[in-house]
Design a protein around this nucleic acid. Sequence first.
DNA 1: TAAATTCTTGCATTATTCTGCACATTTTTT
DNA 2: AAAAAATGTGCAGAATAATGCAAGAATTTA
Lengths: 249, 249
Amino acid sequence: MLKKERQAYIIHQLDVHNKVLSSNLSGVMQVSEDTVRRDLQELSDEGKVIKVHGGALSRSFNFLYEKGNVVYAQQGKKIIAGKVAGMISPGMIVLTSGGTTIQEIAMALPTDLHATFITGSLPAALAYMQHPTVEVIVIGDRVSKHAKLTVGGDAVSRIGGIRADLCILGINAIDREHGVTDNDWEVVQVKKAMIKAARKVICVSISEKIDSCQPFQICGLQEIDTLVTELDPLDDKLSGYRDEGLEII
Amino acid sequence: MLKKERQAYIIHQLDVHNKVLSSNLSGVMQVSEDTVRRDLQELSDEGKVIKVHGGALSRSFNFLYEKGNVVYAQQGKKIIAGKVAGMISPGMIVLTSGGTTIQEIAMALPTDLHATFITGSLPAALAYMQHPTVEVIVIGDRVSKHAKLTVGGDAVSRIGGIRADLCILGINAIDREHGVTDNDWEVVQVKKAMIKAARKVICVSISEKIDSCQPFQICGLQEIDTLVTELDPLDDKLSGYRDEGLEII
DNA sequence: TAAATTCTTGCATTATTCTGCACATTTTTT
DNA sequence: AAAAAATGTGCAGAATAATGCAAGAATTTA
């Protein structure tokens, strides 16, 4: 097994299990523990893993430890989070609510990213707040208990006053015919406003939600620039959306 | 279970339950109590937990680390929460940040209370949001990572536009000479505005904080109507405040 | 105050890591 | 193509870290 191969395998294991043991890896990859340790050392120097006595932990695991905040993520969400985190550059970003995926992205962000996140989602605000260098701005208004999000005319008009570089849009349903849809009217108003406020819109969704539809439309496909899922961009399920002109990642 | 892993788990537990017991952790994590204690010691040295006899408390219990008694800490908090909950009647209430005590009050509220809580504190918003019949309104602005609270001119001016029936003021320090004080200038601005916005002000404080003082003044004693602590209202420590005309509960 | 629990400390044991070195493999230079 | 340099790997022994145990001290509870 080649060095690069081993290191890729280690990263993969960490993505899945959040931890690896030197002793374990040594057996699986058929190299000495010293070699495993050297691999871990290198990855640690590159900031890709957190080396600890006995093995290594994934970065997000360490993030939890450092900040004392916990989010339970499924594997798919982690993949999405990694993809999205790689697309974020310094600037002004509006965040819609979107369950744990949005929060998972916070943990995958480069630790030195200087960006401003604007959101009405309280869990998201708490998650991004943990990051050392990003700024968080909360949109105020009445809280929707269901969505844990501020909603209402005041929130919408506030968002209308923002010019953001990017909108990260967590969604509940998307299909080719109706575009992005949701079942909560108030949330829809907020998301609509956020899309308008941003130059570029990234749509974040677990593949389960693709090709499904709900009562209220948020926007058509043409208003979205990029679709991020946990699937391979070439997956058949996504080909129709690529045909519509969306960037698939 | 690796050392860091254990420590992350401990922090997680503290986030959820606010306390951990050494004996308990020892069983769950399958290590000796000595090891658990060493973990707690390290976390304590790093300032991440408050180590006490029998286990550890989350940092939000910062008011009691000298007393060092798990049960007492919980009781103190609960006593205050019960007292305050009994004083709340339907209407419009502004809430300042104030650690877990403020959140504990949310759990002690009558389940059919119809009231509106206005706050910039994200943990408080999440806590009150759980209640079936109360409404929560969040004040928007930049988030102070330290206080987990929205702060800034926008927040202050928003609060200025509110007429509330009651202000529940969680505080860091109070003494007869300087009144209510705090060490975070931005938080002070928000609290000042909240006091002005409310007809009646209830000051909530663990007795540890009484007769202490910090750099910035929030308000004088004359601006407070009621002081709630976990102590008996007739306790000597409070007599001076009663002399100043405060209602002690 | 007595009993029970928990804490601290030092020590022994084991597990893990580090270091220098030898050897093989790959890459670069001549 | 041969020689030289750089890199990757494994091994052995020294150094370090982690853990459990035991006995006495301290704290809490009854």
